[in-house]
């Protein structure tokens, strides 16, 4: 009975994941047999020093990279069996990504940047802009819909990025050091926003961070060092 409940709530499972890079003649072991599960609605931080394997772990979580060994399951689906296009579509529908440096498209305004994630799904322009505007209002940017990224502050850009990650109603949002490029106050505001969205929408959040205050405010922490989980 207990196992059944766990199976139902498990969103992602990493099974003995190894990632090795070839750097010239040298082999770099970024991850060494990592195994963990992420449940639905979790609010998790991945912590560790630089070079510990955090980014590699996030790349594997977002399906933009593939493991050298091991198996990744999303909702019990073995994602390694998916083709590149299938992974892209899966990512678009199931995973929201927030980048450390926002990665907004400079020629699109805030609303268009958010709508972009829907438009690649062939959602009509009118509907996608409508939903984008709604999402931007939810992250507190209702008055900045038509601002281009160059006219937004760092915190505002990150809110747009979060809105873009959430607009497709994904199962999980994965953020790579979302507060690293922000000042402390703005960083905490972004964290509060993510926490609020996690609580209200039950969207799973996984993000990498160095920030101790952030680590202290999350439900779970995956501690990583030299490519191995230490906690």
């Amino acid at each position: 009975m207990v196992q059944e409940v766990i199976a139902k709530t498990k969103l992602i499972s990493f099974e003995d994941i190894t990632k090795t890079y070839q750097l010239d003649t040298q082999k770099v072991h970024a991850l060494r047999g990592v195994t963990f599960d992420i449940g639905k609605g979790d609010f998790i931080a991945i912590a560790g020093p630089s070079g510990s394997g955090k980014s590699t772990l996030l790349n594997l979580l977002t399906l933009i990279d593939t493991p050298t060994k091991g198996r990744i399951r999303y909702n019990n689906v073995d994602v390694d069996t998916l083709s590149d296009n299938e992974k892209t579509l899966f990512r678009n529908k199931q995973i929201g990504i927030v980048f450390q440096s926002y990665n907004l498209i400079p020629v699109l305004n805030a609303m268009e940047n958010v709508a972009f994630a829907l438009q690649v799904q062939s959602v009509s322009t009118a509907e996608s802009l409508d939903r984008a505007a709604q999402m931007l209002k939810e992250v507190g940017l209702g008055t900045h819909l038509r601002h281009r990224p160059s006219n937004l502050s760092g915190g505002q850009k990150q809110r747009v990025a979060i809105a873009r990650a959430l607009v497709t109603n994904p199962s999980i949002v994965i953020a790579d050091e979302p507060t690293a490029a922000l000042d402390t106050k703005t960083g905490m505001e972004i964290l509060d926003l993510m926490k609020e969205l996690n609580e209200h929408k039950r969207t799973t959040f996984v993000f990498s961070t160095h920030d101790v205050r952030i680590i202290n405010s999350v439900d779970h922490v995956i501690q990583i060092e030299d490519g191995r989980l230490i906690n």
């Binding site: 977002t62 933009i64 590149d84 296009n85 892209t88 579509l89 990512r91 678009n92 529908k93 990504i97 980048f99 990665n103 498209i105 400079p106 972009f116 994630a117 690649v120 799904q121 873009r164 497709t168």
Partner: peptide, 16 residues
């Protein structure tokens, strides 16, 4: 290149 990577990460297909 980075922008293309972002668009691909968000869900844009190669042919798009």
């Amino acid at each position: 290149t980075k922008e293309i990577g972002t668009m691909r990460a968000i869900g844009m297909l190669k042919n798009q």
